[in-house]
């Protein structure tokens, strides 16, 4: 069972504003999808999980200076900027 509360909570975690109409639509869809996911309950617990298919651990490189973007390039796709910096929304509410 997926409740409307679950949907609003998930939307808040995902930082996506949703309307009442959307919440009900997503609730119905999520219920069907999650019900399908529950097939995994049949799988036994005692199995080592695989997070990554390649046997790679840490990949190191020399700590040397490389090429990087100029300030102008880095800012070229930002709408809000000031004095060569990104301008973000207020974080203290």
């Amino acid at each position: 069972m997926v409740s409307l509360e679950d949907v609003y909570h998930t939307a808040e975690l995902a930082k996506i504003e949703i309307t009442e109409g959307e919440a009900e639509k997503f609730r119905k869809e999520f219920e069907k999808i999650i019900d399908y996911f529950n097939i995994l309950d049949e799988v036994e617990e005692d199995i080592e999980p695989t997070f990554h298919v390649l046997p790679i651990t840490n990949v190191f490189r020399e700590d040397v200076e490389g090429e990087c973007l100029s300030q102008e390039e880095a800012l070229s796709n930002a709408k809000h900027k000031e004095d060569g910096h990104f301008k973000g929304p207020r974080v203290v509410e």
Partner: peptide, 18 residues
């Protein structure tokens, strides 16, 4: 903030991002 779709006006971060 850094790229992509943005709103005209910045707001509180919660409202803006969402």
């Amino acid at each position: 903030v850094r790229y992509g779709y943005a709103l005209e006006k910045l707001d509180s971060w919660r409202r803006y991002f969402s």
